[in-house]
Amino acid sequence: MTWPDALDVLGALLLLLGSLLSLVAAIGVLRFPDLLTRMHAATKPQVLGLMLVAAGLTLELRDARVAALLGLVVMAQMVTAPVAGHMLGRASYRAGQVDRDLLVVDDLTGVVERVDEERGAP
């Protein structure tokens, strides 16, 4: 087996793994009982999934330009995914979309009203 072959196989493997994780994320969104739990499935396995797909593509195409672009994609995802997850989770908690039966502990009860502070930069 030559080097390009080995890289091809490795790249294909990474692509497959990444897609598998994205599939699991989709299943999680379907199966999990409430919004906050679904957030875990929707935002997370797919972070690693995207990283693996990007790495796989880099190995397949072996082009520095593509690699740089994919690096940007992964970076943008890593910066924005937590913000999106946080905003959705926060909004859903404040809107009362929480199934309390599913929680062992809720340290946030009654805190939300007190926790509000002034908006904007200091």
Partner: peptide
């Protein structure tokens, strides 16, 4: 990721969460 993937495929019953 593997842990959450596992929970997704084989959810423990009951699945319990917490806000910490």
């Amino acid at each position: 990721s593997l842990q959450v993937a596992w929970i997704t495929v084989v959810p423990p019953r009951p699945l319990r969460n917490a806000i910490v």
